[in-house]
Amino acid sequence: MEQALHYLNVGAAMFLLIGMALLLGRLLSGPTLYDRILAVNSFGTKTVLFLCVFSLIIGRQDGIDIAILYALMNFIATIAVLKFFRYSALDVSMNYSSRGDLSKTVVGKAEMSGEDT
């Protein structure tokens, strides 16, 4: 039974790796920079899942701690990148000033087109 669980986990990890490899295609070809951000974010989620499965495979708990860290870092990195493109600076605090009505849009300083290649 242990052996069967082992192979089950390895299979799941394999499919997660295939999913990551497919996402790499979107990351490389993504026409707009937002496609790339989306691909990296999704890639991060898959890495978290992969780390969880993998640490069960090798029977060590420490991998799950790293998965927790990544689940948090992935979120923070995504927000940081978006903030960078919205304000073209990182030291802008995200407070309520960036929230507006649908009619009066608050447009950031850095407005750039979606195309990046």
């Binding site: 990351l27 990296v40 890639f43 890495t47 780390l51 990195a77 990046d116």
Partner: peptide, 15 residues
């Protein structure tokens, strides 16, 4: 794209 790919590289190498 390169910056994003470096993030992915770090994810993979940590795994």
């Amino acid at each position: 794209a390169i910056v994003m790919l470096q993030g992915v590289y770090s994810l993979l190498s940590a795994a």
